[in-house]
Design a protein around this nucleic acid. Structure first.
Lengths: 131, 131
DNA sequence: CTACACCTTCCCATCATGGGAAGGTCAATG
DNA sequence: CATTGACCTTCCCATGATGGGAAGGTGTAG
């Protein structure tokens, strides 16, 4: 299977598949006589794994660790859970940070009448009150 | 005032102040005989404006627009509000996306017993059910 | 045979930020 | 006065994940 078909089957772009191979996340793909990469069902399955993990926001490094654990039938689920818990904590922290921004912004936006007049609480806030 | 003092007074790193000047967000700073950049109260005030806007998550491009409006005493508040509303919508969208990730992850993590046993619903989910 | 779709590698761009090198300047202290 | 340490300057490189696009080779259908 060509890289294009593997991409379509996994939802990971061909660009990214090559990139993942370059940085060592994926083992080098088999090549045909014409130097085209050749993928089978198990490679596509790995790509799908990567795609799902990316959609959950895992970093490439984390996905590398998860892939290693996935391949190891003897892994302790504890290790998987630790990676996922840490990522979840990171996500929650980033969400909280962005919610704080959004909350402040929402107040400012709701206070600004947003017409042709120049007075604007948004700029006043950014300017530190005095200008 | 040296760049270090301007940095301390504004909360924007010296590295970033130089960078903002390079990309045209800030007008080139005055120079002393020794080629050191020299900042006054109004430059520091602009830097504080930038710092506050960054802390609210505005992009450099958006801050450039906000700075222009800030300097213009005749600006219509509508334009400011539009930029802020758009940024708020972006933030809300990103928050929602991350919350969806976090929600899925939280379920998976809570289902995984996380001990020495190898069976793990997190990997099962990433693997698409079958492996 | 020609067109078109696909593949290859290689380089560059994003966005905001920082690290660090190599070298010049300033102020305080011995 | 000389040294030291804290500044400053410019320049280059790195991050993380992704994509654009060029230049060139390959495969297939009309």
């Amino acid at each position: 299977m060509n890289i294009g078909s593997a991409s379509a089957a996994s939802g990971v772009s061909a660009k990214m598949i090559r990139h993942y191979e370059t940085i060592g996340l994926l083992r080098p793909a088999a090549r045909r006589d014409n130097a085209y990469r050749d993928y089978g069902a198990s490679e596509v399955h790995e790509l799908q794994f990567i795609g799902r993990a990316r959609r959950l926001g895992f970093s490439i490094v984390e996905i590398g660790q998860l892939l290693t654990l996935w391949r190891d039938r003897q892994r302790p689920s504890r290790e998987v859970r630790e990676i996922a818990s840490q990522h979840l904590a990171d996500l929650d922290a980033r969400i909280a940070e962005m919610q704080a921004m959004a909350s402040t912004l929402r107040k400012l936006v709701s206070c600004c009448h947003g017409d042709e007049r120049p007075d604007c609480p948004i700029l006043e806030d950014l300017g530190g009150g005095l200008h």
